[in-house]
Write a protein that binds this DNA or RNA. Structure first.
Lengths: 209, 209
DNA sequence: CCTTTAAAGTTAGTGTATCTAACATATGTT
DNA sequence: AACATATGTTAGATACACTAACTTTAAAGG
């Protein structure tokens, strides 16, 4: 089993009890992550995060401008892990092989399902701040991992226009699949089809021709 | 141009001023729709809807259980129009032709972009109530429109397992595309590719073999 | 090592949101 | 006309986001 970056759900109290917390910023991000996962992006409150981190409700504002800023920071942390996982899931697989593409797809879906709170937070959790350059950069940086693999799989040296198109197709598909799967609508398919078969089918259709 | 169901943005005040509103339930749904479109699902407040509808902040609770119930009702109204549009967008196109599939895809994306508030509300606007049978039924009923066309396009009489798989692929793809396009990430493709070409390419890849 | 300064907490308070309770007014039935 | 019910109101309880003013701790310089 590949070692992937997990959010550590270790200790409950989440802090030491001292006037200064040590790293409250990180503590609040972790609290936010947990709560968003538990109650969803709606239903999250700064107050809850404070209770979980064991600080007063005014404390966050020394580290974040407002609630949305806190959510953005939490999304960025999640995307960081997501990126690491996307890279890690391919190690050992022969370069230029479709298996690497499939591994990426599997990992994308896994993250979307397993950390669905963060996933939803990223895509539609807040309406303002969508233009935050840190978010855009994080997204593109992950997409580039896919593009490199697609290029390599198509036998291209660089990321050509064709590579971008195919990569975009794959991303759209896997992204949509992630959303739909979570709403249990996989049952619409009859339920007898397995994810790997499905991903393989898609990779073949998009990468050939 | 096909007559499609539009949300009517006619008069500003949205009501007459009388103790009894006439149809406050519909009025609140319309107000909610507008506000969700304007400020996003986050950023929507019942109070705002009341102000827009011109009633007191307690009035909604005679028609809806709570805020989420109001949002669900608004989503259902939107999905109703979405369904009508999906059916309307195919009229005149030869039955069993891929053009009908493409029309469906175009219409799906159009709705997702043009009524992006409702779209996002449906997919991740609220964490509880995801199991509301009305939502599930509305979703399936729209998916069945797609399935019928896919069957017809593949020359099948009924909705076979194969038809479900292909339909599911198409839906995943178009759904993901809708999300990604809104975040302007279409620019990732170089920007020179047009939606119709893209949809056609996808339809071909998914429906052949 | 002591003093000063800035960082990172606190409590208290404001304004607004959701939702409930008690009350008021219209509507429709007999 | 009288009554019941549907549909609105005002007033208030509780919770949340955020700010201001104060306090404690850590860090830096002489």
């Amino acid at each position: 089993m590949n070692e992937r970056t997990k959010p550590k759900n270790t200790k409950q109290p989440l802090r030491k009890a001292a006037y200064h917390h040590g790293d409250l910023r990180a503590g609040l991000i972790e609290a936010t992550r947990r709560l968003v996962e538990e109650k969803g992006p709606d239903g999250f409150s700064v107050s809850d995060a404070c209770r979980l981190a064991g600080v007063s409700t005014a404390a966050p504002y020394k580290h974040f401008n407002d609630k949305t800023d806190m959510l953005v920071a939490t999304v960025l942390e999640g995307m960081g892990r997501h990126k690491v996982n996307m890279q890690a899931c391919m190690v050992g697989l022969p370069s230029g092989s479709p298996q690497r593409i499939m591994a990426l797809g599997r990992e994308y879906v896994r993250f979307a399902l397993e950390e669905h709170g963060i996933f939803r937070l990223k895509f539609g959790g807040f309406t303002d701040r969508l233009d935050d350059p840190r978010l855009q950069e994080a997204g593109e940086s992950i997409f580039e991992i896919v593009l490199r693999e697609v290029a390599s799989c198509l036998g291209e040296e660089e990321v050509t226009a064709e590579v971008r198109t195919r990569g975009f197709m794959l991303w759209s598909f896997v992204h949509g699949l992630s959303f739909i799967m979570h709403d249990k609508k996989m049952s619409m398919m009859g339920g007898d089809i397995d994810l790997d078969t499905f991903l393989g089918d898609i990779a073949r259709r998009v990468l050939t021709d």
